[in-house]
Simulated scan of single mutants.
Amino acid sequence: MSKVARLRHALPMSPDINAAVADLDKAIADAVDAAKEAGLPQGLIVSLLHGHAHAQTHQMVTNDH
């Protein structure tokens, strides 16, 4: 793990933001676990997550949110 960098926001984040990030992370992890238990292939799970990440990135760079 020596090549893993911890990213930090330039300014301290509020407890509300930290809680929202933790909730989002847990929801994603729970959804991935449920998908695996339902028998979805791991590649499909990854591709769906990648597609959502790509769409969100597109919205950010085009200011189309």
Rank of each mutant, 00 (worst) to 15 (best):
Q56M: 15
L11Q: 15
D30K: 01
I28A: 09
G43E: 10
A34M: 03
Q56C: 10
S47G: 04
L40D: 06
M1V: 14
G39V: 02
A5T: 12
K3T: 03
E37S: 14
H58G: 02
Q59N: 14
A55F: 10
L7V: 03
H50S: 12
L40N: 09
A20R: 09
A27P: 00
T57H: 14
A31V: 00
N18D: 05
N63Q: 12
V4N: 05
T57W: 13
V21K: 00
H58T: 07
D25H: 12
Q59F: 04
L11N: 12
H65I: 11
A53S: 00
H65T: 14
G43F: 03
D25W: 02
I45M: 05
H54K: 05
A55E: 10
L48G: 04
L49T: 00
D64C: 03
D33Q: 05
M1E: 09
L24V: 12
M60T: 08
P15E: 11
N18H: 01
V32P: 01
D23Q: 08
A20F: 06
A19F: 03
V32N: 04
A34P: 00
V4D: 01
S47V: 04
K26L: 02
K3L: 13
D30L: 00
D33T: 10
H52A: 14
A20S: 10
D33N: 09
A10K: 13
S14Q: 00
A31Y: 02
V21Q: 03
P41N: 13
S2M: 08
R8S: 08
D64Y: 01
T62F: 08
T57M: 15
L48W: 00
L11P: 02
N63I: 10
L7K: 15
Q56F: 14
T62D: 01
Q42E: 15
A5L: 13
V32K: 02
H9T: 10
T57L: 15
A31R: 05
A5R: 11
L24F: 02
V21G: 06
D16F: 08
L7S: 06
D16V: 13
V61K: 09
H52C: 12
A31P: 05
A53C: 07
K36W: 07
Q42N: 14
D64H: 08
Q59S: 12
